[in-house]
Design a protein around this nucleic acid. Structure first.
Lengths: 208, 208
DNA sequence: GTCTATAGCGAGATAGAC
DNA sequence: GTCTATCTCGCTATAGAC
């Protein structure tokens, strides 16, 4: 019965592949936490490895090198974000409600927020492995926000007046990043959610 | 004539002291440029030294160690900033005009802007040598901006409506930082001065 | 005041045993 | 798949000559 043998072999393979995949995920979580706390440059592969409970050479079996690890972390991060909040900029109202919801969640999950704050600044250096990623990210954020504001405008809910939606998009995205930075430095003095909500209500005729 | 001898000696000493001071300044400029381009962690003392045209041990004759150098750079930077723009928050109008003027100058002098953007994120880590500095900086920024908005309010020039001046202060300071980040990543797509001006005009009844 | 030489460490990455 | 051992590099910082 060659067929059953084949099935057993396949199952073994898939079990092993699953274990490997779990290991990869553990490492990605550890790496995200490490990069979030100290940034990419200041974090060593040994730091990440010890957090994940293996040696740094063990880690390098799963990822090619340090830039490759960062890339994988970023991919994993945007995938999770996309799953948690599928932002549809065609519907401006739900879009901006989602922005407030994201801010709310972020106050409870400081790791991802810190990760992004640290990397976006480090990545200003053209040679940084996340430089291209960040440039593309902000372009995307600006276009999505602009679309959302345009949708609001169509429904008569845009309060920007003479301010073009492109500018409003920069205002909102920029403020979110700056507020995050100040909130991370002084959580007691900066109300992240309230700040985000209040700003959006200045540009949109919505009750958030 | 002991007096003249004394004068000669003093002059020699002061000339030498002046040369040392110039050297220090050269190093500070080099260090600011280096930290601005790659951040503090990723910059080596050898990088800084070669920019200043001396060996890294020569550099360590003028500054005690790497954190000490960063501290000196920051001190030098705020001193220059204070001289260039003596911000008086008692007069809200000139205060906000100065903010726009600073943004204008910054578009021409990207070094200081980059320096600050990179360090403020790196310094999120509590152990970073600029952590305390940044925490204090943003506290100060918030209070100054709040005072300026209160002054506008007294003169009937505050357009924030129900938004408390403290919140407006966070909005404006946060937006400036976030806009700077996006401008550094994509100078062609983000108009820093226009963005800053437009935002302030949303909160203040001023023609900037 | 600036240098060469060097100590001492920690990093990223590879080789090869198990 | 994970490890130990090791290579090689660059870093901060110190010691001491000039």
């Amino acid at each position: 019965m060659p067929l059953t043998e084949d099935v057993v072999v396949r199952r073994k393979v898939s079990i092993r592949a699953q274990a490997t995949e779990e290991r990869r995920q553990q490492i990605l979580v550890a790496a995200a936490a490490a990069f979030a706390s100290s940034g990419y440059n200041a974090t060593s592969l040994r730091d990440v490895a010890s957090r994940a409970g293996l040696s740094h050479t063990g880690l390098l079996h799963h990822f090619p090198d340090k830039p490759g690890l960062l890339e994988a972390v970023l991919d994993d991060q945007i995938q999770r974000a996309a799953e948690a909040f599928p932002l549809e900029s065609e519907d401006g109202e739900t879009f901006f409600r989602a922005l407030v919801a994201i801010a709310e969640r972020d106050t409870a999950q400081a790791v991802e927020v810190r990760l992004f704050a640290m990397l976006s600044a480090e990545a200003l250096t053209p040679g940084h492995p996340a430089h291209g990623y960040m440039t593309r990210w902000y372009e995307r954020v600006r276009t999505r926000l602009t679309e959302a504001f345009r949708d609001l405008d169509r429904r008569g809910l845009y309060k920007g007046g003479a301010l073009p939606p492109e500018q409003a998009a920069i205002h909102v995205s920029a403020m979110r990043d700056g507020a995050t930075l100040q909130w991370l430095l002084a959580p007691d003095q900066v109300d992240l959610v309230g700040t985000v909500r209040a700003q959006i209500e200045l540009y949109a005729d919505l009750e958030l």
